[in-house]
Design a protein around this nucleic acid. Sequence first.
RNA 1: GGGCCGUUAGCUCAGUCGGUAGAGCAGUUCGCUUUUAACGAAUUGGUCCUGCGUUCGAGUCGCAGACGGCCCA
Length: 495
Amino acid sequence: MTENLSENELLQQRRSKLEELRKQGKAYPNSFRRDSLSQDLKTLCFKMTKEELEEKAIEVSVAGRIMLQRIMGKASFITLQDMKGQIQAYVRSNDLPEGEYDEFKTWDLGDIVGIKGTLFLTKTGELTVNASSIEMLTKSLKPLPEKHSGLVDTEQRYRKRYLDLITNQDSLEVFQKRSQIISSVRDFFINHEYLEVETPMMHSILGGASAKPFTTHHNALDMDLYLRIAPELYLKRLVVGGMEKVFEINRNFRNEGLSTKHNPEFTMLEYYTAYADFNDQMNFIEGLFKHITEQVFGTSKLEQEGIECDFSKPFTRIRLKDSVAQKLSVDISVLDNRDFLMEIGEKYKIENLANLSDGKILFELFEELVEDNLINPTFITGYPKDVSPLSRSSDDNDSEVDRFELFIGGKEIANGFSELNDPEDQAERFRDQVAQKSAGDEEAMEFDSDYVEALEYGLPPCAGVGIGIDRLVMLLTGAKSIRDVLLFPQMKPKN
RNA sequence: GGGCCGUUAGCUCAGUCGGUAGAGCAGUUCGCUUUUAACGAAUUGGUCCUGCGUUCGAGUCGCAGACGGCCCA
């Protein structure tokens, strides 16, 4: 927006207040230092009586944004908000130098101020700073959203997240929880001797997942690069290099539509463990979830879609084919029958049916019929090989791979498998991907010969897992949209 | 990509059958020394998302578009 002459009256009023501060040399100072945060003071004084507080006469400096004002003729209450919450201050004309109270009365909601004074309890028992000195630290030129409702307009909440955070406590709490969840994940891995690493975000070969990429260009090298869709192939190179336990928490980019479940950039946890298989990883995940829920929420029991889930108990494990057979109330053996699969596939309107392999049809049926109903934490195993180009083939069934996905609340939360470490098998799977790509599959991988070479040096038997952090945070905070767990979700620019 | 819904004061929202644009909060002015969504009185403030059309007259009806939300693919 361009600055124009007919500027809003509210803005003009505040600007002239700022001009007055400038004249007095009191605009935007940075010499005030606080020594206390709102919630810390409340915790400190929690059990003290009015008399005890008076006797101790605790001197504090607090700072924050004015969220509420109750202005009276010669004394006022204001509510300050800082990073930990809110605290009330009592500003009395008699306790301030001549003229300051009148100046104080021109302060606006949203201004950022510093206050020094002594703690006391009001007659209704609220901890309050009795101001002995006050200072305007940052004049706010724009009025805050309405004080009761906060910022409601969804679009503005995403575009101007700072206003959402100032006025909506719930929103702030989601992001505090997000931070705690990620810390808790890091703790868990570091305690289990994993090394945190960062691998390239810009890839010259597309791989590690099935997705459409963003493309960018490196000028000096005059070459196109993809923003990564997954870190997998780099992390496994590190395992070849002897980093036997590695994890990375970082952004992936996928060139797809936006929805309540998708943002073009999203955060992924991936980790790899040498000398472990997919069964070990399922056990490990159970431990991870128990750790996160207990550490962040203080309980392992959280409600999902109206059902209480206990994350301290072992998760349900069921084979993909069994779950589909159960849903259809048919014997598992009929799912090996192509004609039957075609018939059911038709019934559930699966596209391009004739060109799909049996495995792919089964997979699509699973997504269509079963996925949404997996509310309690459930591991699905026995994935078809042709939807899993990087997974190790199952020892006892050549058409399946040693892979699982974890579903909670009807959403896919984790995907893991025993890694394919046979370079010849891997080369074969890449060739298959390339064929699918030239047949028009935009999401197919490219042949990564450098990766195959790494495998030729020897990737120890290992297993890896990817967990979508945004979805995990949605799950644990009850957020309905991924935009509610991303500070700045992708939006179209206005104008 | 398709369907439905939304966009009115800084914010939260009303606006009937097409006939001068409304409230609460915020702001301004006055009063008020323990209030707490402070209170009482007065008062300022509008690109009704944009464009085109219908009409004597459009916030309201029609068409197109922008942005957003939800659902579906």
